[in-house]
Design a protein around this nucleic acid. Structure first.
Lengths: 204, 204, 204, 204
DNA sequence: TATGAATGAGCCTTCATTCAT
DNA sequence: TATGAATGAAGGCTCATTCAT
């Protein structure tokens, strides 16, 4: 019982540190950010942080892993077995909405996942790339399903297309999370155009 | 006269340092790379580097500026005044080919522009983002021209679409520059699918 | 009454902590050893240790004091009033046996007294040196007694000789406590040679 | 040529750092001593020290290695082939004098070799123990030679005796290097008694 | 112009010790 | 009495940058 309470407390502390770290890492960048900055934000001694995380990198990894986990969950929810272009568009919409919601809730995470993670460490970069590649593999299944059922272009190179779709989605996330888009109408414009573009391209 | 010769010499030295820096930054990453590593590669004293560049960041900026300049030139060559979808597709193709050629010649530049630059410094990130935004603005002109002349989808949000096209292009560059694609056939697949996707989307 | 019981309990706890500390200090060395390591070995909170000892050094001092006390007792038992070389040799033998018994029982104590104590602190070094000097002073009394009674060499500088005897004894203890001598026969060889050497030197 | 000058300069700097380190390590102890303390003594930046030594331990090791090398040289000079007790005594005397000279020149080295080295690191301890064991092995050869030639006691366990002689020598060094003996007469007393004791023991 | 020795800001990390519970 | 969460002094080490030669 005491153990459960303690574990909860530890989890809460860890979460606090992660929250402060998200702020510090996203605003200062991983390298410029100091453990002391994180501690100062929480009004705790900097030694305390080392009771919860092995080192600075460990904190960053935890943030990243948590975020990537959330993103993965969104994608995994959608089975790659739609039966029409409309259905597929709806599915794309749901995935986009799910991911956008994460970064809309906390735009600083986009900075961490798509910018900072690239300067920390080959391993961190790899984590992100890996998730995107998994996402692309999922998407490829959607494509293959669509081609088979006849509602997607048969000339498509599904693997390449899947990567392009992923890139568009990431771009949308980055733009939505950027400070220059706080307008809901603007977000809506991105959402819609992305889907339309994916489905029908630029042509008339 | 002596001045010209001297200036040439300086320019050559600068170029040598930049070349070595591309190697070092792309293989070790900006933060892990040391000025000494660059100097060692050139067999010069590391103090010498500071006679040609103000500091480490300055070297990185120079690499980036040069690269971004090359990229800009490719884009600027194409006037946003095509008259048909085919013509536009051809233009897209040429731009893509031009950019791909740069990174095909030296794939390490992709690492620097699209990975390292994001972890160095807000300013470096900004440089890249700025070029891409300029690129997107150009692209937007193409779109507007196409919509006006009736060969592009009129429901399009040209600004958003331009950004998405940019993202796809960058993704293609990253993939082509990645070591996992050395196959020319594979490159061709990316080039073609990107254009097809842009023009006609995924739908049948 | 409760007080007595309590005191006993305290003493027992202290003893437990000392026992664990002997293990930790002798195996890891004073500086590398952490208070937490000692606590872990006892399955108690590391804060608890500070209820019984003022600090890390205090623990070490207690171990040392206890050990040095035991050693002193052995020596004190022998009156410096033997009447012949044989008697004196026997006395030396008893002292050596007494001391060797202590370290044979727990060889880790040799590590603590003759190795670790020297790297901890000037004060700790001083404690050991002090005991050895007391021991030497005792020995000097034996010598003077022997010279007076005519069974020890009259040319002897008794103070210096006493120190040399002490050094030989300590060396024997160190070797016996070292892991490389587990053989009883080997221990016997040291004991005998030390006494023979002391009495008659190396000469024929 | 420039290289030679440079190497010399480097060697001088290294020597300066070692000299300062001997002072700092012997007075404060290895663990309490800080790199900054050494740098302060030399009025140089502490970063400079790292241009000449890999780390703090490396400095200590260099001091120790140098000292142990000097000691080894003294011993190696004496061939284990004396022909009489007197000759052997003379040889012992020379070795003792040689070693004592080292520590008389700089008594702080005794602190480092016989005290500090034991608290730094198992490896450092090992270095010293190793030299002493080599010394003892040499001594054993002297003993065996003496026994064979009949001028040393045939009942002797030469290995054990060699270790005891080593211990006496080290004890003499420690005492001579200790501050309490600055008196030359006192040093002489130790030298003589050690030899007499070794040769003839305590007995009359 | 080239060099590389010197510098010291800066930062991560450890761990003995304290103290509220 | 026992605990272990919190603390922060302390220090080793790196490396971009400077500058005397």
């Amino acid at each position: 019982m005491a153990n459960i309470a303690s574990e909860e407390k530890i989890a809460r502390r860890k979460a606090e540190i992660l929250a402060a770290s998200i702020e510090v890492f996203s605003s200062q960048g991983f390298h410029k950010a100091g453990i002391a900055d994180i501690a100062k934000q929480l009004n705790i001694g900097h030694g305390t942080i080392y009771r919860y995380f092995k080192n600075k990198r460990d904190i960053f990894n935890a943030i990243l892993a948590d975020l990537l986990g959330q993103m993965a969950e969104i994608v995994m929810q959608e089975p790659p077995t739609t039966d029409s272009l409309d259905e597929y568009a709806g599915q794309l919409q749901r995935i986009a909405d799910g991911l956008l919601a994460i970064f809309n809730r906390d735009p600083r995470l986009a900075r961490i996942a798509f910018y900072e993670s690239l300067g920390v460490d080959p391993e961190a970069t790899e984590s992100v790339e890996h998730l995107l590649s998994v996402f692309a593999q999922f998407t490829e299944q959607y494509m293959k399903n669509g081609i088979e059922k006849g509602f997607l272009r048969s000339t498509m190179n599904s693997r390449v297309a899947a990567n392009l779709v992923t890139a568009m989605l990431v771009e949308t996330i980055k733009k939505v999370a950027a400070k220059d888009i706080t307008d809901d109408q603007e977000i809506e414009a991105w959402r819609q155009e992305m889907i339309q573009f994916m489905i029908g391209g630029l042509g008339r």
